[in-house]
């Protein structure tokens, strides 16, 4: 076996896995903690990519900075979406089937809006470091993978610290564990969920920036990530942030190895395999509570 090929596959897998953590992070909060099945999450990520593309092309902003600047806007959009979701579904207790259809429709509308405005062509961002790479022995690490990896780790760490150390973060964990008890403590669960949903969508802005750095983006590319994201969340154990990171690395590594040794067209099946095996063998995931 070619050692260089193997080492490169491992390195690429770890970098890819880190990026996957950023992609799954928002839904890990929204689905894992709040029990809201936002399957439109990848569509929000692609929306982030396109807005970063616009900022990068229009003002020459660095994609990562553009992604961070977009986060407050995405937070506000998330709060708004949750308001609608709460008023239409959660309050009336119809969230399961109707809520799913709602987010499915939302995903579709976001995709089509970008098709109408930008067409179905692939879009790219520009920055000085994109296209260069560092050589470490046999392994070449491209900057366009390393920067997203570092940004993803930073964001995952920040969210982890926020949830475990701050008052608001603990309130979000509390609302997922016992909504009634939180209410009895005098806190408003709806307000807290609204903030948590906003944070989940805000992570999509940065994840979108990372997505368009890694490769070109077209409006429907988000669909490829739906299965992957849910596989990561289920494998990691619903809502566990360290679990999400570990699961993302496992799936990134596996996909990279499959891509290298079997063929890139088989990579989408990896996540589904993990999803099925996890649900059959250990439904609570790696870091699950029950």
């Amino acid at each position: 076996m070619d050692a260089s090929l193997f080492l490169n596959a491992i390195a690429a897998g770890i970098l890819l896995g880190g990026f996957y953590a950023a992609v799954a992070l928002g839904l890990s909060i929204v689905f894992g903690q709040l029990d809201i099945v936002n399957i439109a999450h990848p569509a929000f990520i692609v929306a982030g990519s396109y807005l970063v593309f616009a900022l990068n092309g229009g003002f020459g902003l660095d994609p990562v900075i553009a992604g961070i600047l977009l986060m407050p806007i995405f937070f506000a959009v998330g709060v708004l979406v949750y308001r609608v979701y709460y008023a239409a579904f959660e309050r009336t207790g119809r969230e399961s089937l109707a809520g799913l259809a709602f987010f499915f429709g939302l995903m579709f509308v976001i995709e089509v809006l970008f098709i109408i405005f930008y067409g179905v062509d692939y879009r790219l961002v520009e920055a000085d470091y994109i296209g260069k790479q560092i050589e470490i022995g046999l392994v070449g690490i491209p900057w366009r993978m390393l920067v997203p990896f570092c940004a993803a780790l930073a964001m995952t760490g920040a969210i982890y610290l926020f949830l475990s150390r701050t008052f608001l973060g603990r309130a979000i964990l509390a609302v997922s564990q016992d909504r009634l008890a939180l209410q009895l403590m005098g806190a408003d669960p709806v307000k807290i969920k609204q903030i948590a949903f906003g944070i989940g969508i805000a992570t999509a802005a940065l994840a979108g920036a990372l997505l368009i750095m890694i490769g070109p983006v077209e409006p429907t590319i988000g669909r490829l990530y739906i299965g992957r994201i849910f596989a990561i969340i289920v494998l990691g154990g619903m809502g566990s942030i360290p679990g999400t990171l570990v699961a993302a690395l496992i799936i990134g590594l596996s996909e990279s190895i499959v891509t290298t040794y079997i063929g890139p067209s088989w990579a989408p099946t990896v996540a589904f395999g993990f999803l099925l095996i996890t649900l059959a063998v250990r439904p609570q995931g790696l870091f699950g509570r029950q």
């Binding site: 399957i39 799913l100 669909r223 739906i226 099946t269 589904f272 999803l275 099925l276």
Partner: peptide, 10 residues
Amino acid sequence: AIATLAMAIV
């Protein structure tokens, strides 16, 4: 629901 979506991708 998620499994059926992933199944279609496979």
